[in-house]
Design a binder for these strands. Sequence first.
RNA 1: GGCGCGGUAGCCAAGUGGUAAGGCAGAGGUCUGCAAAACCUUUAUUCACCGGUUCGAAUCCGGUCCGCGCCUCCA
Length: 466
Amino acid sequence: MPLRFHNTLTQQLEDFQPLDGKTVRMYTCGPTVYSYVHIGNFRTFTFQDILRRTLRARGFTLDHVMNITDVEDKIIRNAVQHNQSIQQYTAQYTEAFLADSATLRLQRPERLVFATEHITEMAEAIEKLSASNHTYESDGSVYFRIGSFPSYGRLSKINLDGNIAGARVDVDEYEKDDARDFVLWKARKPGEPAWPASCGEGRPGWHIECSVMAMKYLGETIDIHTGGVDLVFPHHENEIAQSEALTGKQFVRYWLHAEHLMVEGQKMSKSLGNFYTLRNILEKGYSPEAVRYLLASSPYRKQLNFTFDGLKGAAASIDRLRNFELRVSGGVFPDGENPEMSARAAQALTAFDAALDDDLNTADALAAVFEYIRDANTAMDSGAFLSANTASARALLSRFDSIFDVLKPTAAESSISDEQIESLIADRSKAKKSRDFDRADQIRAELLDSGVVIEDTRDGVRWKRK
RNA sequence: GGCGCGGUAGCCAAGUGGUAAGGCAGAGGUCUGCAAAACCUUUAUUCACCGGUUCGAAUCCGGUCCGCGCCUCCA
């Protein structure tokens, strides 16, 4: 089955193929670095990571660009409050974002690009748009006239005719011809950072940065563009208008949008007290892998209900996967190969890939892995799993982890070395042999205090760090 | 008002015409010095509700109710 994605533009599942058949040119909307990125943002970024990894697993080369928005109203306001330049102010949150992303094992895009490093290109783009009558100037600011772009609204299916009853429409803040016209260049205001441009000193609007940076690095037509659903309108709609008004070519072939995350069944908001950053959650003692698993386990087009029960469940699921991996790598199996078990693993691998190919159905992909694990465990218990079957089991786990990336525990500072652990386990085995179970249990408790779990199996003692 | 996503067991969640995946949690059991791990059994005659189409519907159609998002630079 071919790789298929749901395209927001057509609202249909479509077979995916990059324009040149080989390299996927992908642009993902990154964070605005005015504060710590929250867990809802990371739902979207985790989806982008699963997308990246799946594309690579299908053999495509990736050219993935993510922007960092480092000039914007909130940034300016906060920087002024902290008596810092916007560069100083954004640097710390860019750092934090990259660190958090690494904690969640999000692969770095091929290029991270910063808005403030592309002001010249943005000003040039605005100049071209003005030359072709897509803009107008008002009080020193430059606006894009959506009336000049007939297919405006195609992505978001927004109705441009008539009033938007019930909607809040800003009509007075700027002198706009149409309420939905958007700003390309904001005239300089006292105390704000500004750059010189032919249309006057000022700073770029938000939408223009993505168009300019995407096309600079990826070309006029790119394969995939992603973001959260809230970006469909107006951000992505505006990107299309600007870009296609500039080039006359289709800007993006596949638009993919991640649904939002809810927290305990409610919209995440500061006033409800359910607003979390990754750091907030890790401070409560949850592992980064559990967070990653929870964010990745639900398909991206469904709202995800983030709960602490769900996090505990995610951690338990990871334990099950890791226990199986330990059993495969540390178990002693009879010689030979059971062809049925090898076929079972191959079937699971196929099902895993097929689920991901189907618009990244991660829940279905996980089911394929868990079903295999149950069958393999059963076979191990009955002696039907043979030594040569470990290869196909490992192949499946490896494929799984190339996408989900949760098997390897995050290294924690440990007070105890592997040698000390082995030595204590040897002591405990001696104690057990002489039926001194009190001593044996005491050693087990000591190890547990140091974060080491030991388990007695048929094939000897196995241990893992918690 | 417009556009969009969704309502499946205690919780999370797959399944888009053929007779309800998977994970977590719970109960009982096997194994074990104990524990853990693992396995087995068990937990939705039923998929928000009502009507229709069909041999057959969680899946298609119509209607109703409910949740959420967007409709001003919020993932």
